[in-house]
Design a protein around this nucleic acid. Sequence first.
RNA 1: GGUCCUGUGGCCGAGUGGUUAGGCAGAGCUCUGCAAAAGCUUCCACACCAGUUCGAAUCUGGUCGGGACCUCCA
Length: 499
Amino acid sequence: MPLKIYNSLTRNKEVFTALTQGYVGMYVCGPTVSGESHLGHARPYITFDVVYRYLKHVGYQVRYVRNITDAGHFEEEGRAAEDKISTKAVVEKLEPMELVQKYTNLFHWAMKQFNNIEPTIEPTATGHIVEQITMIQKIIADGYAYVVNGSVYFDVNKYNTDFSKQGLPYGILSGRNLEEQLDTTRILDNQEEKRNKADFALWKNAPPEHIMRWQSPWGEGFPGWHIECSAMATKYLGTQFDIHGGGMDLQFPHHECEIAQSTVCNHTAPVRYWMHNNMITINGRKMGKSYNNVIKLTELFTGNHPLLKQAYHPMTIRFFILQSHYRSTLDFGNEALQASEKALKRLWEAYKNLQKIVVDKWDATDMALDEKINKQIAEFTEFIEDDFSTAKVLANMFEIVPIINSIKNKQLPLHTLSSNTILLMQQQFQLFIENILGLQYQEDNNDTIDGVLQLLIDIRKEAKAKKDFVTSDKIRNELAQLGIQLKDEKDGTVSWSFS
RNA sequence: GGUCCUGUGGCCGAGUGGUUAGGCAGAGCUCUGCAAAAGCUUCCACACCAGUUCGAAUCUGGUCGGGACCUCCA
């Protein structure tokens, strides 16, 4: 059962093969740390965390590179050159690097909340100015860029003409053709420096008020929009690597430009499998800065936002995201998040109960059910290998949850399923829930609280025996008020969980 | 205007032409002192109109709606 990945480049699901056997190079576009991350940002990092986890699980040694964009990009091409970071820093009375540090820390904190594994290399744009300059020089030397007033622009037309012959036209990734682009690109101001509307900046001359600036062969300035990813990906993953991921909104122009820059420099198309996650929407509309409809992660975790009816745990968000396919849009809503919250709890409790079953050796009394469960378990792997269909994996788990609960409640005899099947369930649930999907559940109970609750449970039991329901209900209800739920099990025992 | 995606039950969402996706919510039942939890059962669906087919949510054409990109954007 080979892993299949939908490749945006070919618009097809393809069997994944690594460039170098046993190793995978993966680059994912990271955050611009000029502000706080929002719900939309959570998606690619969770999506590619699962990709990373899965590749590692099947035995690849993965180098996962995710950049931090801490050098100011333009607000908009053609507008007065304006460094986003430095502008905002003035407003907030912070040094640019101070600001960048603050949001980098916040980003790392959020990633941890989501239980995302750190990338193996997390390079910063400001730490790779030299590499970017070197790359730009190479592009100029090869004749695919030109210098105007201390700025350097990529000559898209020339690139397209020359590389189309090699089957690598500009627009190959996003499926556009340059001629159409030239006719339809919106007319922006201050483009007189460019030879052509489609050209993009590799290096920008810095106006005096620009704080972030570096010395370059073309004067003081700062790198263009797209060059950092090309430079850092090449440096850490080589001239060609396996997977490049990012949001669909980066497909054009960002990734298209990356391809052009790297292809000129390295004489080969850089990426073999391009993966793009779809957007998170809110009322059907993309969540994004430009639409003014973002919910920041800190707001989400605290519930502090007019659109939020409550706070949502990071794991609820992770689960919510994994319940859809990464290439579909996913619509935010309180109802949907609340559904995820309950579903995750139910799944987790069933999973914990499954792990508690002690297994020796027996055969199944219900062969048909036993077989069905085995099939559903086997499908976990099939589904994840089918372009990371996490939603289907979860759906299968939920098909099995009632069986687990029934066995636990003795509504089904333990021996309904064979011991081998139960062992397989235990092993595969753990593998997929914890290792591959990366789900966790807060279990901040310790011996002390457990002891206290056991005491209350005993007192309640005694009260019930005496038919003192006032006392027993008081214990139950007041614990519920505190967020602790008592559960009277079928076998007469009482368990508890945080609700 | 150009390129592309999309329209599934109250909400979120899988869906590869023929069989229940799944979750949450709702209803009934079992269990319970009453509940909760859990289990069982159950209601609600494929925007619209044609066409292809023995058979379409799934393919084709059209109509209407929503969205993304073309500009920083996950």
